[in-house]
Simulated assay, not measured.
Amino acid sequence: MKIIKNIREKSGYTQVELAKQTGLSLRTIQRLESSNKEPKGYTLMVLSKKFNMEPSALSAQFKIIESEHESEKTSIQLINLSIISFIGIPFGNIIFPIILWYRNRKSKFVDEIGRRIINFQIIWWIVLSLLLCLSPIISRKFLSNTQIILYVLFACYVFNIVIVCITAIKLKRNDYSFLNVPISFI
Rank of each mutant, 00 (worst) to 15 (best):
E17N: 09
A19Y: 04
A19C: 07
A19H: 05
A19Q: 03
K20H: 13
K20Y: 12
K20M: 14
Q21V: 11
T22K: 06
T22V: 12
T22F: 08
T22Y: 08
G23A: 05
L24H: 10
S25C: 13
R27W: 07
R27V: 09
R27Y: 05
T28A: 15
I29V: 06
I29K: 01
Q30T: 10
L32E: 01
L32K: 02
L32G: 01
L32C: 04
L32T: 02
E33W: 01
S34F: 03
S34L: 03
K37P: 05
K37G: 08
K37E: 14
E38A: 15
E38W: 02
P39I: 10
K40M: 14
K40H: 13
M45S: 10
L47P: 01
L47E: 02
S48A: 13
S48T: 07
N52K: 14
N52W: 06
N52Y: 11
N52H: 13
N52S: 15
M53C: 11
E54G: 07
P55T: 07
A57G: 06
L58M: 10
L58T: 09
S59G: 12
A60P: 02
A60K: 12
Q61S: 04
I64A: 02
I64W: 00
I65W: 01
I65T: 09
E66H: 05
S67F: 01
E68G: 00
H69K: 04
S71K: 09
E72L: 03
T74H: 12
S75K: 02
I76L: 04
L78S: 06
L78R: 08
L78K: 09
I79K: 01
L81R: 09
L81G: 04
S82A: 08
I83F: 10
I83R: 04
S85G: 05
S85C: 09
F86A: 03
F86T: 01
I89N: 12
I89M: 15
I89F: 15
F91P: 11
F91N: 13
N93H: 14
F96M: 11
F96Y: 09
P97E: 03
I98H: 03
I99W: 03
I99C: 05
I99N: 02
W101E: 01
R103K: 14
K106S: 05
K106H: 03
K106Y: 00
S107H: 00
S107M: 00
K108G: 09
K108N: 11
F109H: 12
V110C: 06
D111Y: 11
D111K: 14
D111P: 02
I113S: 01
R115W: 05
R115G: 11
I117P: 00
I117C: 01
I117S: 00
I118A: 01
I118C: 02
I118L: 07
I118S: 00
F120R: 05
Q121W: 05
I122C: 09
I122K: 08
I122S: 06
I123P: 08
I123K: 11
W124M: 12
W124K: 06
W125D: 07
W125L: 12
I126Q: 04
V127W: 06
L128Y: 13
L128H: 10
S129E: 07
S129Y: 10
L130C: 15
L132R: 02
L132C: 08
L134H: 06
S135A: 15
S135K: 09
S135L: 13
P136S: 06
I138R: 06
S139P: 13
R140W: 12
R140L: 15
R140V: 13
K141G: 08
K141Y: 13
K141V: 15
F142A: 11
L143R: 06
L143E: 04
